[in-house]
Design a protein around this nucleic acid. Structure first.
Lengths: 142, 142
DNA sequence: TTACAGGCTACAGTCACTGTAGCTTCAAAA
DNA sequence: TTTTGAAGCTACAGTGACTGTAGCCTGTAA
């Protein structure tokens, strides 16, 4: 079948806003869409699939640059997927270090909040900890 | 003692760049610094402490807006620290939901990578999963 | 005196969108 | 057939928290 989609249908399918699709076109992640008589964008199934690929990759946290690379690599079906693998692994590392960083924050925030008496600012443990790095457990500067 | 600091000394102590301090001044988080005869910024201990407060809060992930609020509240030592507590708790919630989101990504990325044979693009599991949301375990749209 | 590190302003760029203003087009109802 | 309202269009500014650049000026140690 020979589906045609409006930009609104694309947006709904890609769980994104209409502007986002226009933005992807502008930065060259989606190629310039064909237009109908009234200058409105019209998409086919291939463009729809490409958008879904991009959106799914974004949900997994890949940057637009990484997605651009993966899309370029995936144009060569005979090519080894080693590079794709490397991009994914390096992104996984990024995600893991973000998790660690956030877990450090969580620990310290919880500690701070639990010590807070809800009393006067003058005795507020939260402000005290924020004021004084020495009071903070997780204070390595990486 | 009556310490005076240059912007470079402030930056080193706050583990940030010189531009960052000028930026904080520009957006009103630090008040306009005094200047020496040659128009260079000169800081005192109070400004140094304020910068450290800001930087430590940033390390814990607070936004500049939240920091601005906390600083305003902490000017009133008699005031209850309930609001400070609320800001901290709401930030903790944010951090926790970011952790959850990243853990979902990590899980899916690991699954994808483990299934990848390192073979041809045509059979690449990573590209396949990215192409097809149905193949993804963590696919709730929150 | 001479290097050169450090500081100054002003402004553009980053990332990935999101929002706005002021239009035009499309499709269904009256 | 007209009208209404949703959907689409372009162009541009704004977001957050910086970071980088260009082209100057100032301070300090050799």
């Amino acid at each position: 079948m020979n589906h045609r989609y409006s930009i609104g249908q694309m947006a709904r399918a890609g769980h994104c806003q209409v502007q986002t699709i226009r933005y992807y076109e502008q930065v060259g992640l989606l190629k310039k869409a064909q237009r109908n008589a009234g200058n409105q964008r019209v998409y086919d199934q291939a463009q729809m699939d490409r958008l879904k690929f991009i959106r799914h990759s974004r949900e997994l946290g890949f940057s637009l640059e990484q997605i651009r690379e993966i899309l370029a690599l995936s144009d060569n079906p005979d090519h080894s997927c080693l590079q794709v693998d490397q991009i994914a692994r390096s992104h996984l590392k990024d995600v893991e270090s973000k998790i660690e960083r956030l877990q450090g924050m969580r620990k310290e925030l919880k500690r701070m909040i639990n010590q807070c008496s809800g009393d006067q600012i003058a005795d507020c443990r939260i402000i005290e900890v924020l004021s004084n790095h020495q009071l903070c457990l997780a204070r390595e500067h990486q």
